[in-house]
């Protein structure tokens, strides 16, 4: 676990350094994700030099543990919102309607354009398992 977390933090740290140092338009963690993808792509060749935890599936399980509780990570910022709800109230119903309608439109457009284009290209959809 600790080696995997270290690898993740190292990627993020390098990402932050690169984003700052080279004034890249993407945030540090996103560069860090790209670096991690690079590591995963090169893993078969680097394997003899890497710690065992990176190649034996431990990195995968550590990452999945973090992602399984992605919801938790938004809670502190969300609590800040509860205290600022008066900002919404001040601008009234209009903003609430804009948020709801726009979110429905964005979800619908995105999903329809995706599946339409996919069908146009004759790709198979992934429909395994039933939705909750």
């Amino acid at each position: 676990m600790i080696v995997s977390v270290t690898a993740i933090l190292l990627c993020q740290l390098l990402g932050e350094a690169l984003a700052r140092g080279l004034a890249l338009p993407a945030p540090g963690p996103v560069i860090g994700m790209a670096l991690m993808l690079g590591l995963l792509a090169l893993r078969p060749w680097l394997a003899p030099t890497l710690p065992r935890e990176i190649t034996n599936g431990e990195l995968e399980s550590a990452s999945k543990t973090i992602l399984a509780h992605l919801s938790l990570l938004f809670v502190p910022a969300g609590v800040g919102v509860v205290q600022n709800l008066d900002l919404i109230a001040r601008h009234g119903l209009g903003l609430a309607i804009a948020l709801v309608v726009s979110t429905v439109l964005a979800l619908t457009t995105t999903a329809f354009v995706f599946s339409f284009t996919s069908r146009l290209l004759g790709e198979a959809a992934d429909t395994n398992g039933s939705p909750p």
């Binding site: 977390v5 993740i8 933090l9 990627c11 993020q12 990402g15 540090g28 963690p29 996103v30 860090g32 994700m33 790209a34 670096l35 991690m36 993808l37 995963l40 990195l59 995968e60 550590a62 990452s63 999945k64 973090i66 992602l67 992605l70 990570l73 938004f74």
Partner: peptide, 11 residues
């Protein structure tokens, strides 16, 4: 949140 974005690389 930052490490989680890096962890997305796995998925």
């Amino acid at each position: 949140l930052g490490p989680a974005i890096v962890a997305l690389a796995i998925s």
